[in-house]
């Protein structure tokens, strides 16, 4: 167990040929990708909303969020439903099939070179066999997502005024 009391089990998912992991405690459920209801004037990386366990939750296209090229959903596409304190948010990822244990010793802090904007999203980098896995910091991804939204709104407003 790490010092923040989270278990050392993770859900692995793939996004643009890269392996990512989220702590299993942060994942509420995995879903097949179904239809979403688009929300007008929401940030472009928000695919829409979906009804899940009686809640309306936003669905974030993680490819769009990380500025990768979007691609059509297929049989392997999954919705990873993340619970972060009070919020529940869905991430669309290329696929998710594995549940793994990553011991704390296998995790290194992200190198300085990936610091800055993208470095914030990572809790660390782990090596498992010959695979490199990026450990996602869910709270940061969500926080940053909002900041981006705010920025965009600001830009929009300025645009209207000018």
């Amino acid at each position: 167990m790490s010092d923040n009391q989270k278990p050392d089990t993770y859900i692995l998912f793939e996004l643009a040929e890269t392996n990512y992991a989220v702590n299993s405690q942060d994942v509420q459920q995995l879903e097949m990708v179904d239809e979403f209801t688009p929300v007008p004037n929401a940030p472009d990386f928000v695919e829409g909303v979906v009804f899940l366990r009686g809640q309306v939750i936003p669905v974030i296209n993680l490819r769009a969020r990380f500025r990768f090229e979007k691609r059509p959903f297929d049989q392997r596409t999954r919705l990873v439903v993340i619970r972060d304190t009070e919020r529940v948010v869905g991430f669309i990822v290329d696929t998710a099939r594995e549940f793994v244990t990553i011991p704390a010793e296998a995790i290194q802090l992200p190198p300085e070179s990936v610091a800055g904007m993208s470095g914030r999203y990572l809790d660390g980098i782990a090596t498992l066999g010959n695979r490199m896995i990026l450990l996602l910091n869910v709270a940061e991804v969500l926080k940053a997502a909002e900041e981006i939204e705010l920025e965009e709104i600001e830009i929009e407003k300025e645009g209207v005024v000018s």
Partner: peptide, 13 residues
């Protein structure tokens, strides 16, 4: 159902 998440709280909805 309320929409609570800031990402989807948009004007008019």
């Amino acid at each position: 159902r309320a929409i609570t998440d800031p990402l989807i709280r948009v004007p008019g909805i």
